[in-house]
Simulated scan of single mutants.
Amino acid sequence: MFLAWKEIKHAKMRYALVIGILILVSYLVYFLTGLAYGLAEDNRTAIDKWDADAIVLPDGANVNINRSVLKSSDKDQINADSIASLGVVSTVLQSPKKGETDTKEGEVVKDIADDKIEVAIFGINSNEFIMPNLIEGESFSKDFEVVADIRLHEEYGVEIGDELALFGDLEESFKIVGFTEQAQFNVQPVLYATIPTFQAIRFGKVTDSKNKSISAFILRHHRLEDIEVQNDELKVFSIDSFINELPGYMAQVLTFGLMIIFLITIAAVIIGIFMYVLTVQKISMFGVMKAQGISTFYIAKYVVNQTFLLSIIGLVIGLLLTLVTAYFLPSSVPFSLNVLFMGAISVLILLFSVLGSLFSVYSVAQIDPLEAIG
Rank of each mutant, 00 (worst) to 15 (best):
I121D: 02
I121Y: 02
G123R: 02
G123I: 07
G123Q: 01
I124D: 02
N125F: 02
S126A: 12
S126F: 05
S126L: 07
N127H: 11
E128V: 04
E128D: 12
I130E: 00
M131A: 13
P132F: 05
N133R: 15
L134F: 09
L134T: 10
E136Q: 15
E136P: 10
E136R: 14
G137Y: 12
E138H: 10
F140W: 10
F140A: 06
S141C: 01
S141I: 09
K142N: 09
D143R: 06
D143V: 05
V146L: 02
V146Q: 02
V146E: 01
V147N: 01
A148V: 10
D149N: 12
D149T: 09
I150T: 11
R151T: 13
L152A: 04
L152K: 07
L152D: 05
L152W: 06
H153K: 15
E154H: 14
E155N: 15
E155F: 10
Y156F: 14
V158P: 13
V158N: 09
E159I: 12
I160K: 13
I160V: 14
G161K: 08
G161V: 08
D162V: 08
D162M: 05
L164E: 02
A165V: 03
A165G: 08
F167N: 04
D169E: 10
D169G: 06
E172R: 02
S173D: 00
S173Q: 03
S173T: 01
F174N: 02
F174L: 14
F174T: 05
K175V: 06
K175L: 03
I176S: 03
V177R: 07
F179H: 11
F179Y: 15
T180A: 12
T180C: 14
T180F: 07
E181Q: 15
E181F: 03
Q182R: 15
A183H: 13
F185L: 06
N186S: 07
V187A: 12
V187S: 12
V187T: 10
V187F: 10
Q188F: 09
Q188W: 02
P189V: 07
P189E: 06
P189I: 04
L191T: 03
L191V: 08
L191H: 00
Y192M: 01
T194S: 08
T194I: 01
